[in-house]
Design a protein around this nucleic acid. Sequence first.
DNA 1: TAGTTGACGACGG
DNA 2: TCCGTCGCCAACT
Length: 104
Amino acid sequence: MKEDNYFQKVYELTRKIPQGRVTTYGIIATYLELGSARMVGWALNKSFSSDFSVPAHRVVNRKGELTGRNHFPAPDMMQKLLEAEGIKVVDNTVVDFEDVLWYP
DNA sequence: TAGTTGACGACGG
DNA sequence: TCCGTCGCCAACT
């Protein structure tokens, strides 16, 4: 079990996302120099199997859409978690996306 | 060992 | 402006 691989870096950065804020796969990929946003999605997918403490619901695509909700235990879990933090979600998309967007 | 998949992003028509 | 295609790179089968 390597703790210093890029998967762990994604988890660590995701945990740093403040409550009530969101970020995108592309931002994480660029910040960690992963080379591809798909790697971030893959890492977060695996995060459910390795570490449930990763707030993956705060990571969306560049449009602000909750594309990852289908990979949660419940499809509406992601939206409920975001709304619980004060983020408005309509039609699986974050309202005022740029306003709540967080940069590392 | 090689091919396919995948929670995306950028670019072109 | 919207839709389709290509590229990214590691994990899985």
